[in-house]
Design a protein around this nucleic acid. Structure first.
Length: 224
DNA sequence: GCGACAG
DNA sequence: ATCTTGTCGC
């Protein structure tokens, strides 16, 4: 489908498309043995001008040193509706991604993977569209229930929904609320958790997502 | 009708 | 997401 119209639709049509795309998900696998680049994506918003500020950072792996950042600024054309985040931020991600010179083998998203009411959060949605390995790392849960994980970084508990596991509540830092990790595309639960942990450097958020967040905010502030 | 509700 | 500085505590 044409890139400029894969996000153009009504909320009802969007939900139907999610049901379709879900069939293309591959919930197994993990990073290749030779991952040299990892990406992180996030989008900031300015409610006064209704603009979205997307940033996709590329870091070396496993050293996690900054390589480059692709950015994009655009007017929000779709409202924020729980469960349809991809239709709001997807267009901005596409534009920022197109500006990158490098192609990371794995991309972490600020949002959920399959831990979604229809199993297709933004990380899973974009993962299928680009057929690339992705992982969702959200700060809050959208659906499901879980018990608090242990206090040590690396401790985690299952996030369940509809009788099955859809992700994990992962402690990435002491005394910090856990983050919710779920496979996006071409990733299994264990592989996703292990990979996210190798991307953490003492902060609650893994470096890819943490730096993307900083870049997106920087972009928004510069747009003044 | 009442809560829950990624960013 | 954003509105917003300092401050208490580990």
């Amino acid at each position: 489908m044409a890139g400029y119209q894969r996000w153009e639709m009504t909320p009802q049509q969007a939900r139907l498309l999610q049901e379709e795309l879900r069939a293309g998900l591959i919930l197994a696998g993990g990073p290749e043995e030779d991952v040299g680049l990892v990406g992180g994506a996030d989008v900031s918003f300015n409610r006064h001008n209704n603009k979205l500020y997307a940033a996709v950072v590329v870091l070396s792996y496993p050293r996690l040193e900054f390589v480059e950042v692709g950015t994009a600024v655009m007017t929000a054309a779709f409202p924020y509706i729980p469960g349809l985040l991809a239709f709001r931020e997807g267009p901005a991600f596409d534009a920022a991604w197109a500006r990158l010179r490098h192609r990371p083998q794995v991309v972490l998203f600020d949002g959920h993977g399959i831990a979604h009411p229809r199993g297709l959060g933004i990380a899973a949605h974009i993962g299928v569209l680009y057929d690339m390995p992705t992982i969702g790392v959200a700060k809050r849960k959208l659906v499901g229930r879980y018990d608090p994980p242990g206090p040590q970084p690396g401790d985690f508990t299952p996030l369940e929904y509809g009788g099955t596991q859809i992700g994990v509540a992962l402690r990435t830092k002491k005394r910090a609320k856990p983050v919710f990790v779920s496979p996006g595309h071409r990733f299994g639960f264990t592989e996703a958790v292990d990979f996210v942990l190798t991307c953490c450097r003492g902060y609650k958020l893994p470096e890819p997502t943490r730096l993307a967040h900083l870049e997106a905010n920087k972009l928004r502030k510069q747009d003044l």
